[in-house]
Write a protein that binds this DNA or RNA. Structure first.
Lengths: 99, 99
DNA sequence: CGGGATCCAACGCGATACTG
DNA sequence: CAGTATCGCGTTGGATCCCG
């Protein structure tokens, strides 16, 4: 149950993708630049999964060259404060461990 | 940065362990029962990691037979509402996907 | 009861090359 | 620009056995 629900953010770099989209829509190569270590294959896979789960939307523009915009859905955006809370705790734990 | 902070909940069954401890301290075998698919090795590994990160504490009681209690730290407890928020979103996304 | 040691298999990521 | 296909490898989790 918990595991199944937490699966919405599963997969490498999934949270980074969500994080990069928190300020607004981004294109494929913009996301690649935001998350340097990610490979095109994994980014593509992750975007497909997250779109299928309803976390984000994929918007293809019939331009030349092609342009594809990704954006968080309303529910996807609700994940941001939750992730932020975890990051804050992680940050304080790290400070504790070092101090 | 984000990735490094999110690492506090990394590893298989980590969130389940935190979740099982949200209502209070639990012993090793109680956690095994709470999370049936987990193996002793992985539970042991995860508990060590989470203790080292400051998410939970390990309390050995000099009883016979031995008893070891695990409990969330204050910071570890702060992860619970965040995880709960993600679970809620996951639940609603699942409902959307099925409906 | 609460683990550590060992071995193994599988999933998933990364790199590279190619395409519409 | 925005992907897909293929391949190889490394990490990690699972199963089993054993111990204080």
């Amino acid at each position: 149950m918990l595991t199944h629900c937490m699966a919405v953010i599963s997969g490498a770099w999934a949270v980074n993708v969500i994080w990069s989209l928190r300020a607004g829509p981004r294109r494929f190569n913009e996301l690649r630049i935001d998350i340097p270590p990610i490979s095109a294959k994994v980014l593509s896979t992750r975007l497909s999964e997250l779109a299928q789960r309803g976390v984000l939307t994929r918007n293809v523009r019939a331009t030349m060259p092609p342009s594809v915009e990704y954006a968080l859905t309303d529910l996807g955006a609700e994940l941001v404060p939750a992730l932020d809370a975890i990051v804050q705790v992680g940050h304080r734990l790290k400070a504790l461990g070092e101090g």
